[in-house]
């Protein structure tokens, strides 16, 4: 039973959580593992909260993950990572991007929210937290579009994903057009090379 791996990816519509979850699923399936997943569809307009549940293993029945049962949460946005925290198991791993996305409501009411407050709170709660300075990383990589693969790389390097960089890389090469391979490979290995 404990061989199952439960992963939640969360963020804001348009950040690439779906592609990242598909890469995890493809890499796991290529290893002959059983995969189930579920994600936000329909009203997932740009700017709304979105999540993907990905489950890998042979003893899984539901595509949804229960609270307190996720081995790993990859938060593409600090506020959304906090929102999903009830799903993380005790001593589970969280990876979170430090870059906040302001909701429309904050613009309207003039009350912004403070992403740093979110990561700080997570820091107090969790033993296994990796905060990724995605702004800095994307600047160095020269593209904001690879944030999803960057975070996926961090998940690989944390060890909680149960997949290797090469296994994800194979799935990535299959999924993306060749001209994007180089950039995405750099994003995938970024946290390994930059010691985060």
């Amino acid at each position: 039973m404990s061989e199952n791996i439960n992963i939640i990816l969360c963020g804001v519509g348009g950040q690439g959580t779906v592609l990242a979850s598909k890469l995890i699923a493809a890499a796991a399936m290529a290893k002959g593992m059983n995969v189930m997943s579920a994600e936000t569809i329909g009203m997932a307009q740009r700017g709304g909260s979105v999540f993907s549940h990905v489950r890998i293993g042979n003893d899984i029945h539901s595509p949804m993950i229960a609270k307190g049962k996720a081995d790993l949460i990859i938060g593409f946005e600090p506020g959304e990572a906090v929102r999903m925290l009830p799903y993380l198991k005790k001593d589970g791993q969280m990876i979170v991007s430090s870059r906040g996305v302001m909701p429309v409501t904050a613009s309207l009411s003039g009350t912004g929210y403070d992403p740093a407050q979110m990561t700080e709170w997570l820091g107090k709660k969790l033993n296994n937290l990796m905060i990724i300075d995605t702004d800095k990383a994307c600047r160095e990589l020269g593209s904001a579009k690879v944030m999803n693969v960057l975070l996926l790389g961090a998940a690989v390097h944390s060890g909680a994903l149960g997949l290797t960089e090469e296994e994800i890389a194979v799935a990535l090469r299959k999924r993306l057009p060749e001209k994007l391979h180089e950039l995405n490979m750099q994003a995938l290995s970024y946290t390994r090379n930059n010691g985060q």
Binding site: V12, K67, G79, L85, K90, V104, W121
Partner: peptide
């Protein structure tokens, strides 16, 4: 049994209702 981390002191979260696209 409680399986989740304690989130009683969770800071207020941003509200993201679906909106018409830009």
């Amino acid at each position: 049994e409680n399986y989740s981390p304690d989130t009683a002191d969770m800071p207020p979260l941003p509200v993201r209702p679906p909106v018409l696209c830009a």
